[in-house]
Design a protein around this nucleic acid. Sequence first.
DNA 1: CTGAAAGCGCTTACAG
DNA 2: CTGAAAGCGCTTACAG
Lengths: 335, 335
Amino acid sequence: MRDVSRLAGVSRMTVSRVLSDPELVLPTTRDKVFKAVADLGYVPDKTAGSLSSRRTGFIALMLPTLTNANFAAVAHGLTDALRGADYHLLIAYTDYDMAEEERQLRNLLARRPEAIVLTGAMHRRNASRMLMAADVPVVEIADLPSQPIEHAIGFSNYQVGRTAARYLLDRGFTRIGAIAASPEGEVTDHRGEERMRGFEEELRLARRSTDGVLRHGTAPVSFHHGAAAFRALVEQQPDIEAIFAVSDLSAVGAVMEAQRMNLRIPQDISIMGFGDFEIGREINPALTTIHVDFHALGLRTGKMLVDLLASDATPAPSTVDVGLRIVERASVRDR
Amino acid sequence: MRDVSRLAGVSRMTVSRVLSDPELVLPTTRDKVFKAVADLGYVPDKTAGSLSSRRTGFIALMLPTLTNANFAAVAHGLTDALRGADYHLLIAYTDYDMAEEERQLRNLLARRPEAIVLTGAMHRRNASRMLMAADVPVVEIADLPSQPIEHAIGFSNYQVGRTAARYLLDRGFTRIGAIAASPEGEVTDHRGEERMRGFEEELRLARRSTDGVLRHGTAPVSFHHGAAAFRALVEQQPDIEAIFAVSDLSAVGAVMEAQRMNLRIPQDISIMGFGDFEIGREINPALTTIHVDFHALGLRTGKMLVDLLASDATPAPSTVDVGLRIVERASVRDR
DNA sequence: CTGAAAGCGCTTACAG
DNA sequence: CTGAAAGCGCTTACAG
């Protein structure tokens, strides 16, 4: 910046002004500065700017993984909302590991983000404490927590499970099952487990057996996991009629495994998933699923953040349920 | 930090030392400081530290998208290599948009990353200039450029295309096609187009017709894109025997569309893809594809960076070809 | 082993 | 409309 100011023949203060709010400066001065900036290829140092202005322009985003299309959609939505607002996303992912969440959070905090966005509901005691002490807006997304730290935008995974079970019950099935990862593994898919809890609860309320609800293998779920869990379930419960998979990923794997086992979907077994992944629309039969608009969730979070950060007031904590929607396709029939 | 030093009864300098290299400080002093840090929940401000030490600890990573499992694998690999090395990835994605690449690069540069990693080969003039002027190591990944800016770790998409065509020719097919997005769209998939170029070249060298090489629809490719392109190609060239899709995503879409059209894979048409995505292993028939180890690519990049940043010397630019490998599964047969 | 001084490259808050 | 001074929260480079 010193070089720029020398070349333009103005003070460093004037360079700073031209770069942050050109309107404040006389056009002739302004142009000299722009020319010097261009000639030198000068890019201002935001680290110094952040320290000085006490505004880093960082928004921290912590997700379990980037490999999941729905979480990626959240990141895209957030980016879209933030575009033009001059915030930079600081992305971290935990690989579904709570200890890693804590470690990452500390790293993130050291960068002094102006807001923190993370998947909600499950945090270690220490992580929660750090979050509360952070003194910046915290938004928990995706999973709606029973006790939000501050703001929350998401949906209830428990309701996903109940909705799925209700849907299958309404189709007239009586022998209903579900597949998910075992919560005993090295990593736990808390969101999937919540869906299972809701699913089982709805079955119990309908006085149906939960014997077909199978926790199998380790998280995170995948196509392959779904295939293996499906086979295990069908071997255990040969007369099962309808299955809910906690993710479209495992549901698609289940459909593929069914083909290999010469089971017809949905004539022999109905299958539904969760998440409305693109692949579910393309397979044969197309997958019935539960849809949550993750991109919109990210967008909404971003917009809320922009408003929040623009105002001086500290608004009351808010919780927004973005809801969910059953997408009926061909993989579930009426009994 | 001032609060910590007061509480511990030492100078701020001592606090700084305890936090960066505890060995330098007497155990009794050290413990007082640790206690004060814990009591206050103090997290050092890296923005200030960066400015002062002239080391931000940021490594910039710019990718076309986060939604692609292979690019996500690169990011994971990089993270894995950097774990413990106390670097923080600053991730940006361009959505396959060259203008956005330039904009993002400027944002990234303002954060003073200590190294820049980005997908190679295609950059705007301005972006290239900024990269050369950046005065930090630049690593181009995935796509091996003909004229690397500095370091490069990746593979040749042109070779992918040639390898695919060679493989199908060796199986004895004569009526061979390919599907990709049209480069005329709003965004261009340069990598896919390179694969197509290599594919066409190999066909030409074998004196085969390239009439079955179809560019259809807009990038980025997807399951749905593959389904549509496959249908279009088969309608144009009903006697096509074997097809290369520039991505497993479109290849899987093609297999699904074939099922809907009652075409048997591979008895009626053979299909192969690129990228070895998980879904390709699960579908029926399993997909023959070309595999590149993207996680290893990310790992290798990260390790190279750690070495590079640890040494004072400026090593000569290096180019590493990680190669590729055909994975034979059931979707291609011998003619 | 510990601390006082200077400074990183900006912006804030004044002053003129 | 422009500039000189002070300071953001750390680390570097000395000194003792």
